[in-house]
Amino acid sequence: MPDKLDDELRIALMRIARRVRQQRHDDTLSDSQLSVLYVLTHHGGSTLAALAEHERVTPPSMNRTVNCLVEEGLITRSSSPDDGRKVLIEVTDAGTELVNKTRQRRAEWFAAELSGLDTAEYAALHAAIPVLLKLANS
């Protein structure tokens, strides 16, 4: 049975994640679509299967997400230069711009929130970073 710390920490992290997700440049994209754009921007071109595995969804679900992003002009599909049978999915300039603007908006929001902390709160949060990263990467 979780104790009070478990509940409070879990709820706080969920609320922070929700607040960060709300800071986006384009409100019409789903979290899944934006996540795919982030992956492609960060890791480069990918196959549908690799994207599905990375996002932990089924290939048909990823195909629907990719189709929407292609229709919006945010990603492209092309034959892989290594293997013409494979389809390579890549982010377009418009997709990269959307990701960059969303990152900037989120960074500005987070910086503003952090600036409201006093010195002790900021130090406590800074000290917690290694533990939070350990939990995030587990």
Rank of each mutant, 00 (worst) to 15 (best):
M1K: 13
M1N: 13
P2T: 11
P2L: 11
D3W: 10
K4E: 13
K4Y: 07
L5Y: 15
L5N: 11
L5Q: 12
D6S: 11
E8S: 11
E8R: 06
L9C: 14
R10G: 15
I11Y: 15
A12F: 15
L13H: 03
L13N: 07
M14I: 14
M14E: 06
R15T: 07
R15L: 13
I16Y: 10
I16K: 07
A17P: 00
A17M: 09
A17L: 12
R18K: 13
R19L: 11
R21L: 12
Q22L: 10
Q22N: 10
Q22P: 00
Q23V: 12
R24T: 15
R24G: 01
R24Y: 09
R24M: 07
H25M: 13
D26M: 11
D26F: 11
D26A: 11
D31T: 15
D31A: 12
S32M: 10
Q33Y: 13
Q33H: 10
L34K: 04
S35P: 01
S35I: 07
L37I: 05
L37Q: 03
Y38S: 04
V39Y: 06
V39A: 12
L40E: 02
T41K: 14
T41R: 13
T41L: 13
H43P: 00
G45V: 02
T47G: 12
T47R: 07
L48G: 06
A50F: 10
L51R: 04
A52D: 08
E55Y: 08
R56N: 12
V57D: 15
V57I: 15
T58I: 14
P59N: 12
S61F: 06
M62P: 09
M62V: 10
R64F: 05
T65W: 11
T65E: 14
V70R: 06
G73Q: 03
I75R: 02
T76G: 01
T76E: 11
T76L: 09
R77G: 04
S79Y: 06
S79R: 12
P81Y: 04
D82Y: 08
D83H: 05
G84S: 06
G84W: 05
G84I: 08
K86I: 00
E90N: 08
E90C: 10
D93Q: 13
D93E: 11
G95L: 00
L98F: 03
L98T: 07
L98Y: 01
N100M: 00
K101C: 05
R103C: 02
R106L: 01
R106C: 00
F110C: 00
A112T: 14
A112H: 14
E113S: 07
L114Y: 04
S115T: 03
S115F: 01
D118C: 09
T119F: 07
E121T: 02
Y122L: 13
Y122Q: 07
Y122G: 04
A124R: 11
L125H: 03
L125M: 12
H126R: 09
A127V: 04
A128R: 00
A128Y: 00
A128H: 02
I129S: 02
P130R: 01
L132R: 03
L133Y: 02
L133V: 04
L135I: 12
A136G: 00
S138C: 06
S138I: 09
